[in-house]
Structures are given as structure tokens and as C-alpha cells.
């Protein structure tokens, strides 16, 4: 009877904002260097490197968020980053491995560590999970620190060859354009890595994993009883999260030109990885990126205005953002839009 003919459309086909956004992002980063050069000339060299830092923060934040979607508030992000950086550096130093192998292997090393850590911490929740992951990261830092100097350089770390050495061609370019070309090349590497991370995040959000992750985050027991396999999916989230930070660590080792225990495994890397998505909006693809761009701009602006102690202002921004937009920038804007939508609908 009518019940069968009244087939409710399962869901109105939605406009694929996420994929369109990814394409827009790709186009924007493709043209960004030339645009900066045209607009700012010589100053674009440093702007490019600031923009690259923002991309780096985006990758860090988005990859952390992917793991957080399962409720695992990891404080080991610096360890994944450092594992990638050191693996890439070791391969470059001892095996002369080409970078297109070295960087993915950095990602792989991060994944291996993440799987071990993820398996060990499967039963831990909340703050216990956080402290356990933090401890594991600190232990890994110390282990790397104490590897024989001949292998990993100990306290002094290792030098890593830079990736790009553009040549200065007299008469055809100015001196600063060499630096521009180098920074531009790095910018594209980072942009590619970010696009890969974004794509992975979008695929998670569009698939059934989104529901599984949310279910595990909000109630792991109930999720299990409903057929979701929490252990397996939590480990999958660890893999998806660590592979991109690991590669980021590898790329960054090449860009910075060195790895050091204190720098590659710095707690502040972890702090940034979690602060940024909270600021931008958790458990979304857009939020961590908005957070990274927002916080990078805030930090850069503050650095220009107050040379010393600008981090004080950064702290103030964090405090105010939690007090006045507890659901992050994306949550705040989304809430405002929804409220306006309701008002218009009410009219």
C-alpha cells in the first residue's frame, strides 16, 4: 500500500562542499607563490615561509583531529613527528636514500610507533590515555637522545641535506629570487602533503567511519554492542593520524636542515597539535585548518606588534577563545548561521 510507494528519499543529495573546498584549496595554493611575488616582490620570500609554517600547522592539527575523533586525546603527536623526522634523517645520513623514499618511510616509522602505542593504550580513556601517550613520547625522546652518537648524533642531532638548491643565474634573476624559488618549492611540498591529509579527512567524514568514530568517542561500550569494532577502528585512526605527521616530520627535517631530540620531539609540537583544532573547531576537516590559519595570523601579527613576549598575547587569545567560543571558530560561525536560518524560516 502507500507505505511502499511513499519511499522517503534516504537523504537529499547534498552539495559536496568538502570536495569543492579541497579543489579551491589546491587552486589557491597553486597560485599563492606567484601572487605573493607579484604583490610583495622581495618580501614574498619571508611571506612564503610564514605561509609554509601555516601549512605545517594545518597538517599537524588536522592529523591530530582525525585521531581525536575516536575520543583518543593523544599527547604523543610530537613523537610521531619526531619518529618521522629521525627516520628520514637516519636514512639520508646512513643509506643515502632518495627523499621520495625517505619521507614516506618516515611516515611508515611513525605508523609503526603509533600502532604499538595504540595497541598498548587501547584500554585507557581520557586523562589516563593522555598521560600515557605523553609518557611514551617522552620515553621515545630519551631513547633517541641516548642512541650512540655514531648513529643518531645524540644531543647534537644530525644534519639533513636540504631538498632544493636553486641555481643563481646571473643576469636573469635577482639574488633574492633564489631564496624565493627554494621557499616556493618547499611550499608546494607542504601544500601537497596538506591536500593529502585533507583528502584523507574528507574520506573519513564521508564514509561510515565518521559514524563509527563519533560512536566510539561518545560511548565506546554502546558502540561495541552495536557492532562497531572499537579496537580495530581506534588503531586505524592512529594509522591515519600518524602517517601524515610522520611525513611532515620528514619533510621538515629536510627544510630545517637538522634534527635534534629537543626540537623534533618537543612537547610544544604536541601542544600546538591539540590547541589548534580546539581553537578552530574539533572533529571537522575545516576546523583545524581554520584554526591553523587563524592562530598563525594571530601569532604573526602579535610578533610584529610586540617583539618580546608576544606569546603572552597568544595565551590571552586562547583563554578568550575558550571563554567566548567554546566550540571553536567553526562552531561559532555555524551556530550563528543556523540561528539566522531559523529566524528566516520563522518569518
Amino acid at each position: 500500500m502507500s507505505a511502499s510507494t511513499r519511499t522517503r528519499r534516504t537523504r537529499p543529495a547534498q552539495f559536496p562542499w568538502d570536495l569543492v573546498g579541497l579543489v579551491l584549496l589546491a587552486v589557491a595554493v597553486a597560485f599563492a607563490p606567484d601572487l605573493l611575488k607579484a604583490l610583495f616582490g622581495r618580501a614574498s620570500v619571508s611571506y612564503l615561509s610564514i605561509a609554509t609554517n601555516a601549512l605545517s600547522l594545518s597538517i599537524l592539527a588536522l592529523s591530530w583531529d582525525v585521531l581525536a575523533r575516536t575520543g583518543q586525546l593523544s599527547l604523543a603527536h610530537a613523537a610521531f613527528y619526531g619518529a618521522g623526522a629521525y627516520t628520514t634523517a637516519l636514512l639520508a645520513r646512513h643509506a643515502d636514500v632518495p627523499l621520495w623514499i625517505g619521507i614516506p618511510l618516515g611516515g611508515l616509522a611513525a605508523v609503526v610507533f603509533a600502532l604499538l602505542l595504540g595497541a598498548a593504550t587501547l584500554r585507557l580513556r581520557g586523562i589516563y590515555f593522555a598521560i600515557a601517550t605523553l609518557s611514551a613520547a617522552e620515553v621515545l625522546k630519551a631513547v633517541v637522545h641516548h642512541l650512540p652518537t655514531g648513529i643518531a648524533g645524540g644531543n647534537a642531532g644530525m644534519n639533513v641535506p636540504t631538498l632544493f638548491r636553486p641555481e643563481f643565474i646571473a643576469g636573469q634573476m635577482e639574488r633574492w629570487e633564489v631564496a624565493f624559488l627554494r621557499n616556493e618549492a618547499y611550499f608546494y611540498v607542504y601544500a601537497t602533503l596538506l591536500c593529502m591529509t585533507v583528502l584523507a579527512s574528507i574520506l573519513v567524514q564521508r564514509s561510515r567511519l565518521k559514524h563509527a568514530f563519533t560512536a566510539i568517542r561518545t560511548n565506546e561500550e554502546v558502540a561495541g554492542v552495536m557492532g562497531v569494532r572499537p579496537a580495530r577502528l581506534k588503531l586505524l585512526a592512529f594509522v591515519l593520524s600518524s602517517v601524515f605527521v610522520g611525513m611532515l616530520g620528514g619533510v621538515e627535517a629536510h627544510r630545517v636542515g637538522s634534527v635534534l631530540p629537543e626540537q623534533s620531539f618537543s612537547v610544544s609540537t604536541t601542544v600546538l597539535a591539540l590547541v589548534t583544532p580546539i581553537f578552530g573547531g574539533l572533529y571537522t576537516t575545516l576546523g583545524p585548518i581554520v584554526g591553523a590559519l587563524g592562530l598563525s595570523s594571530v601569532q604573526e601579527g602579535l610578533r610584529r606588534v610586540f617583539s618580546d613576549g608576544y606569546l603572552i598575547g597568544y595565551g590571552v587569545v586562547l583563554v578568550l577563545s575558550i571563554l567566548f567560543m567554546p566550540r571553536g571558530v567553526v562552531g561559532l560561525v555555524g551556530g550563528l548561521l543556523r540561528r539566522r536560518g531559523k529566524r528566516e524560516a520563522g518569518r
Binding site: A68, L73, G126, I127, V271, L274, V275, I278, F279, L282, G309, L311, I312, Y314, G315, V316, V317, L318, V319, S321, I322, L323, P326
Partner: peptide
């Protein structure tokens, strides 16, 4: 103001306070 907020928000707020105090 964050007594009932999620743990993560408390973490971020207190991180912020820590950053302010340390950099001062």
C-alpha cells in the same frame, strides 16, 4: 566558567593561562 565544559576545553584554557604566566 569551564567547570562543565569538556576536558579538552579545560586543557586549552589552562594551557593558555600557563602560556601567559610563563611568558610574563
Amino acid at each position: 566558567f569551564v567547570l562543565k565544559a569538556p576536558e579538552l576545553n579545560q586543557m586549552l584554557l589552562t594551557f593558555g593561562i600557563g602560556i601567559i604566566l610563563q611568558n610574563l
